[in-house]
Amino acid sequence: IGSLMYASIFGNVSAIIQRLYSGTARYHTQMLRVREFIRFHQIPNPLRQRLEEYFQHAWSYTNGIDMNAVLKGFPECLQADICLHLNRSLLQHCKPFRGATKGCLRALAMKFKTTHAPPGDTLVHAGDLLTALYFISRGSIEILRGDVVVAILGKNDIFGEPLNLYARPGKSNGDVRALTYCDLHKIHRDDLLEVLDMYPEFSDHFWSSLEITFNLRDTNMIPGSPGSTELEGGFSRQRKRKLSFRRRTDKDTEQPGEVSALGPGRAGAGPSSRGRPGGPWGESPSSGPSSPESSEDEGPGRSSSPLRLVPFSSPRPPGEPPGGEPLMEDCEKSSDTCNPLSGAFSGVSNIFSFWGDSRGRQYQELPRCPAPTPSLLNIPLSSPGRRPRGDVESRLDALQRQLNRLETRLSADMATVLQLLQRQMTLVPPAYSAVTTPGPGPTSTSPLLPVSPLPTLTLDSLSQVSQFMACEELPPGAPELPQEGPTRRLSLPGQLGALTSQPLHRHGSDPG
């Protein structure tokens, strides 16, 4: 009997000691992992102490058991019943959930998450997105703005933001810190809205009876308010094209079509300037034949640059190039080494500058006005007194259609001029006259002087055409309008007829 009692007592005591040691061994194993994590990542002392304290409290609170892992091991129907039991206190005593059906309560219970916070733990920081609604079931918390405590909340209090009033989550206007050990039930806004969409009859009752104890939403960050730039940057990543407008005076608003859609830094370009900076079609017209890549860069430059609305530039004389043409100036200075066709295309550029300027006046029909002061630039669209967005969009579309028509007509005119030049060069190729044979009589004449090349004649003739079109064909006081194609086609051969009437002889060394 004594040996039996000794064996039973010894066996029970050893089993008890073994169970104690097993729990202690698990605790030390998990604690060792936490300390190894702290050492590996070199976490500083204040945060390291918070980690160790939280682990110790969580171990004593749950005995080292992962409740979520245990809950996920059950089937979904059983999980709903378990969640309904775990959140029964909240669902029974909170006013917004009263009167809900059994199915609605089960769906809500599945969406709730339980959070346990030790003292000093910050649940929400200032500036964080308010993605959830919090219900306090135990403990107390404090809300701070800077170093000032603005509120202390306790059991059955609710904090967050009214989700039904805002389409997008706002930002917190303060820090939420736990004063004691707290148990909180939180539900994400997407989950709550999903359940309320499934039960629309409960939705009206819920929003009407929901009383948020403390609204954390920062009202200064609401979209459309003066301080909402940061919020707009976070939620409006896919922005449309940006529009900046110059201020319109009362006198300017009476004149229709007073602005032109141009790229940034293009205030001095012609009315047909689009795409790359520098001139019509993204580059100076005089350098068009020598740089074919300008047409390839036109599309990307047009689509990537934001639109700006600026006044037209001052008018340019008909014979003056659009500006920024070092290529043609070098050719004029060193005409001995340049291609003979460069002079002809220089005359073509003069005609283009004249036609572009006159067509700009035809479509816009307003006098040039000086540029406004820099303080009046970049007025935002949302400022008071601005035109409605639809009106601005319609004006932009009208300007775009005008620019497209202008570009089409300029292309047709350019093709006409090039065809005339090619026809003239085919009839009378460039050549130098040879020395004529002296006559049989004693009164022999001296050799004839060489005839100037055709490109120079073409430049003079085209300059005469531009001056003739600019000065004589337009009646005084009438708006400057571009001439039609047949009129220009008839004027060019008439001007060139006198020049080509002389018999030109080919030089023996000319390969053409």
Results as ranks from 00 to 15, higher is better:
residue 195 V to N: 01
residue 220 N to I: 12
residue 139 G to D: 01
residue 404 N to V: 14
residue 336 D to T: 08
residue 456 T to D: 06
residue 421 L to Q: 01
residue 452 S to V: 09
residue 160 G to I: 01
residue 208 S to K: 09
residue 351 I to Y: 14
residue 156 N to K: 07
residue 376 L to G: 10
residue 494 G to E: 13
residue 174 G to L: 08
residue 406 L to V: 15
residue 146 G to H: 06
residue 130 L to G: 02
residue 353 S to T: 14
residue 324 G to A: 11
residue 129 L to P: 07
residue 285 P to A: 15
residue 474 L to M: 04
residue 269 A to S: 10
residue 306 P to E: 15
residue 500 T to M: 14
residue 330 D to N: 08
residue 188 H to R: 08
residue 454 L to K: 06
residue 434 A to M: 10
residue 435 V to I: 12
residue 302 R to H: 13
residue 155 K to R: 12
residue 435 V to Q: 13
residue 231 L to M: 07
residue 192 L to W: 01
residue 346 S to Y: 03
residue 141 I to M: 05
residue 374 P to K: 12
residue 410 L to C: 06
residue 433 S to P: 06
residue 461 S to R: 09
residue 274 R to Q: 10
residue 317 P to R: 06
residue 363 Y to I: 13
residue 230 E to N: 12
residue 169 P to W: 05
residue 363 Y to P: 05
residue 192 L to H: 01
residue 326 P to C: 12
residue 400 Q to T: 04
residue 472 E to C: 12
residue 257 G to K: 10
residue 182 C to S: 08
residue 136 I to Q: 01
residue 285 P to K: 04
residue 285 P to E: 13
residue 297 D to A: 12
residue 359 R to C: 04
residue 142 E to D: 01
residue 163 L to K: 03
residue 342 S to K: 07
residue 346 S to K: 09
residue 499 L to Q: 05
residue 235 F to S: 12
residue 332 E to G: 09
residue 462 L to Q: 12
residue 482 P to T: 13
residue 361 R to S: 07
residue 242 K to H: 08
residue 329 E to N: 04
residue 232 E to P: 09
residue 496 L to S: 07
residue 314 S to Y: 12
residue 430 P to V: 12
residue 438 P to M: 11
residue 412 A to W: 12
residue 154 G to C: 09
residue 247 R to F: 08
residue 467 Q to S: 12
residue 228 S to C: 10
residue 168 R to I: 11
residue 439 G to M: 09
residue 188 H to D: 11
residue 239 R to S: 12
residue 477 G to K: 08
residue 284 S to M: 05
residue 260 S to L: 10
residue 299 G to R: 13
residue 160 G to F: 01
residue 365 E to R: 12
residue 262 L to N: 10
residue 386 R to I: 05
residue 417 V to M: 15
residue 455 P to Y: 05
residue 474 L to V: 10
residue 196 L to M: 08
residue 328 M to V: 13
residue 197 D to E: 07
residue 184 L to F: 11
residue 247 R to T: 11
residue 271 P to A: 07
residue 325 E to H: 07
residue 258 E to W: 10
residue 206 F to M: 03
residue 252 D to W: 13
residue 469 M to Q: 11
residue 136 I to Y: 01
residue 234 G to R: 09
residue 137 S to C: 04
residue 304 S to E: 10
residue 474 L to N: 03
residue 455 P to K: 12
residue 335 S to Q: 09
residue 211 E to Q: 11
residue 238 Q to M: 14
residue 204 D to Y: 08
residue 203 S to H: 12
residue 362 Q to V: 11
residue 337 T to F: 11
residue 323 G to D: 07
residue 501 S to I: 12
residue 413 D to W: 03
residue 414 M to T: 13
residue 176 V to F: 02
residue 174 G to C: 14
residue 496 L to C: 12
residue 302 R to C: 14
residue 139 G to E: 01
residue 289 P to H: 04
residue 403 L to M: 04
residue 440 P to D: 08
residue 483 Q to Y: 06
residue 239 R to G: 11
residue 429 P to V: 06
residue 504 L to D: 15
residue 476 P to M: 08
residue 284 S to E: 12
residue 510 D to C: 11
residue 175 D to A: 07
residue 315 P to H: 04
residue 317 P to L: 15
residue 478 A to W: 05
residue 368 R to G: 09
residue 445 T to R: 08
residue 159 F to S: 02
residue 282 G to Q: 14
residue 215 N to T: 03
residue 235 F to M: 12
residue 500 T to E: 15
residue 502 Q to N: 12
residue 201 E to W: 01
residue 460 D to K: 15
residue 454 L to P: 15
residue 309 L to E: 13
residue 492 L to P: 03
residue 246 R to Y: 11
residue 171 K to R: 11
residue 206 F to T: 02
residue 260 S to M: 05
residue 155 K to C: 08
residue 388 P to G: 14
residue 450 P to N: 09
residue 215 N to C: 09
residue 497 G to I: 12
residue 340 P to Y: 06
residue 345 F to D: 09
residue 457 L to M: 07
residue 409 R to F: 05
residue 274 R to E: 11
residue 359 R to N: 15
residue 200 P to V: 03
residue 216 L to G: 03
residue 287 S to P: 11
residue 246 R to I: 13
residue 339 N to Y: 10
residue 171 K to C: 12
residue 452 S to Y: 14
residue 253 T to E: 11
residue 341 L to C: 09
residue 313 S to W: 03
residue 189 R to S: 06
residue 316 R to A: 15
residue 354 F to M: 05
residue 191 D to P: 01
residue 345 F to G: 11
residue 381 L to Y: 06
residue 420 L to P: 05
residue 441 G to N: 04
residue 167 A to H: 13
residue 444 S to E: 11
residue 322 P to Q: 09
residue 263 G to F: 08
residue 208 S to F: 09
residue 243 L to P: 15
residue 381 L to F: 08
residue 144 L to M: 09
residue 151 A to C: 08
residue 483 Q to N: 13
residue 180 T to I: 02
residue 149 V to Q: 07
residue 426 T to H: 06
residue 381 L to M: 11
residue 510 D to A: 09
residue 184 L to V: 12
residue 510 D to H: 15
residue 369 C to D: 12
residue 439 G to K: 11
residue 415 A to L: 05
residue 299 G to C: 06
residue 339 N to V: 10
residue 370 P to E: 08
residue 347 G to D: 11
residue 337 T to K: 06
residue 297 D to Q: 04
residue 289 P to T: 06
residue 248 R to W: 10
residue 496 L to N: 08
residue 428 V to P: 03
residue 173 N to A: 11
residue 191 D to F: 01
residue 169 P to L: 04
residue 239 R to F: 12
residue 195 V to K: 01
residue 472 E to N: 06
residue 128 D to P: 02
residue 337 T to R: 09
residue 375 S to P: 08
residue 475 P to A: 13
residue 264 P to H: 13
residue 418 L to D: 03
residue 142 E to W: 01
residue 202 F to H: 11
residue 170 G to R: 01
residue 443 T to F: 06
residue 493 P to Y: 11
residue 134 Y to S: 03
residue 272 S to A: 10
